[in-house]
Design a protein around this nucleic acid. Structure first.
Lengths: 334, 334
DNA sequence: GTAGCAGTGGAGAACGTTTTCCATTACGCT
DNA sequence: AGCGTAATGGAAAACGTTCTCCACTGCTAC
């Protein structure tokens, strides 16, 4: 690996000049045209590659954005991390992806490791796991870091005081439920009550509010997790407990896919027998033509990445982007 | 952030000693019990965190594994990256995830960026994109790096001479097709011919070989990509072109899911009307009870990560783990 | 008694950058 | 002529580690 010193030697200039031309601030300290050219030529022939660690050491900050995802396999978070990665790359940043396996202790460990790497900022993709003992400790540690200047962004409701960019889950579920009501349905079930998961709880609130507005009776089915599998389980239970409702609002698209798969497999038709809608925007529902409240997850991740990459330049916290209804073929008027 | 110098000062020892106790090789150069204790105490009270960039600079190698994924959203690669992440963490490594958007030029760019970060090794998740102009240039660059000592591992058939850990796609498809034949089916279609994608081509070869062995006529349907959407398109075409075959072998689980969704949505039953099987092991097919040839993607990623993390200690290239048939409810005897 | 050696500690030179000073030149003014 | 100033270049000190020497202490073995 060629170093600045070698470049400087070949171009017969000082290391300082080589640095100014290749990586540095040629605007703060001008370098003449021809010297620039010869340095660049030298760099070209020697195949110069700057050393990121050396730069990071010197500037006390590496051009890395740390991402802690609750579950890397969940399309919901995968989508966000992708948005982060793409936007970060535009600013010359790179992302370290750490998976927390939905465990606050692992989140804490990864948080530490990321700080060791002097990352420019850390993004949390995923909600609090309440009731878990490590949650409080994580919060303490994150708060400490935030106060000492580390940029931390949470892309979900979180119990620590970092910057937060969150989608309004209440409003999304509310609007979605209103849409279903507007189709004429009144007997509408909600699948996806997960105790302690704030995002899910907020969606339930939105659903409830919309139902109350139309004097319809809310009916919430509990779930063990936001997965296709548990969607399947829930709808199995729903079928067993009597006639199907007019429509089913699912807490997210994964759940909706599980619901649809089971319904179709059991001989039910959507939207003829029942309308099914989801919340998400990950692509998993596309194959079923799922009606869903699309959440701009990629944009959300991008905003967080940009917020960190442009720290200092533009300190204002961006507002979360707005969700959007995508009408598919799994919902229809009553 | 506390530094070694501060620790040393507090514990009234030299920086060298502090380093030896906290990060270093206390075995190469012994440090007395009580000095160790006081250094550790000092580190504790000051909240010492080693600086990864400084370490990386000194040792010319950071404890980072670079991962270049063809498509971060594809569950197939997501699974691998997860395996990499988990195994890497066991060795104190962290992973930088770069998305290449199935574009060799982006792969090249990311490859460079990763090298700038002095990563310990780089893992490619994803096949060659043949016909694309950047492929040759990428190969040249990778080969150069490999020759100069960079550890590169490809987890798919690749046109450059890095270490490769690849699943035997031919054998997997062959075995899967033999299983379908063993159920008594003879009219078996294969969905998933993607020109230039070596993994897909190898699976076709395996399918063909098995069909020939039983004197059955292979029938391969082309595809524009390995996605649910294109699976749907292909089966639409299949339905339009006459009676359904006895069974459909899909190039991967994503395609199979698309096929199943469309079949179920069109009123066909599996396995009554047609058996459908896939290749994958990502979880996407689980909700349909898909019969699939499970590929140990997580393990595969883990092997690659370990290979890089233990460089020097164990230089031998691990063999790829073996696939395994998972029989679900979408296939049945004729 | 002294050479050799294991055990323990410290000084200081890297690693490759960035950046703050300082030095030199050239120029436009008075 | 003298001087302020912009343009351009270099020397050298950091940044936080690791690690190679080197130094000192007690030993043991002759």
């Amino acid at each position: 690996m060629a170093t600045l010193r070698e470049i400087a030697e070949l171009a017969s200039v000082s290391v300082a000049t080589a640095s100014r031309v290749l990586n540095g601030s040629a605007q703060h300290h001008p370098v003449s045209r021809d010297v620039q050219a010869s340095v660049r030529a030298a760099a070209q022939t020697l195949g110069y590659t700057p050393s990121a660690p050396a730069q990071a050491l010197k500037q006390q900050r590496s051009k890395i954005i740390g991402v802690i995802a609750s579950d890397i396999l969940d399309p919901y978070f995968a989508e966000m991390t992708r948005g982060i990665e793409i936007e970060a790359a535009k600013y010359g940043y790179v992302t370290i992806l750490a998976n927390a396996n939905r465990d606050p202790d692992q989140e804490r460990t990864k948080f530490r490791v990321l700080r060791e790497h002097q990352v420019s900022g850390i993004i949390f993709c995923g909600s609090d796991i309440e009731g878990s003992p490590g949650t409080a400790e994580l919060a303490r540690e994150v708060n400490l870091a935030v106060r000492s200047g580390t940029r931390v962004v949470a892309l979900a409701p979180r119990g620590f005081d970092s910057t937060k960019i969150v989608i309004d889950n209440v409003a999304a579920a509310h609007e979605l439920t209103r849409y279903v009501l507007s189709l004429g349905h009144r007997n509408i079930a909600f699948i996806g009550g997960i105790p302690g998961l704030s995002a899910a709880e907020q969606r339930i609130d939105g659903y409830r509010a919309a139902m109350f507005e139309e004097q319809a009776h809310p009916h919430v089915l509990g779930l063990s997790g936001m997965s296709q599998e548990s969607g399947k389980d829930a709808v199995t239970q729903l079928i067993a407990s009597g006639p199907l409702p007019d429509a089913i609002v699912c807490a997210n698209d994964e759940v909706a896919v599980g619901v649809l798969a089971h319904l179709w497999g059991s001989g039910y038709k959507t939207p003829d027998d029942v309308s099914v809608v989801g919340i998400g925007g990950a692509r998993s529902g596309a194959v079923f033509g799922l009606t869903t409240m699309t959440l701009p997850l990629v944009e959300l991740g991008g905003l967080a990445a940009r917020y960190i990459a442009t720290a200092g330049t533009s300190p204002e916290v961006p507002a979360a982007p707005r969700f959007e209804l995508h009408v598919g073929s799994t919902s229809a008027p009553r």
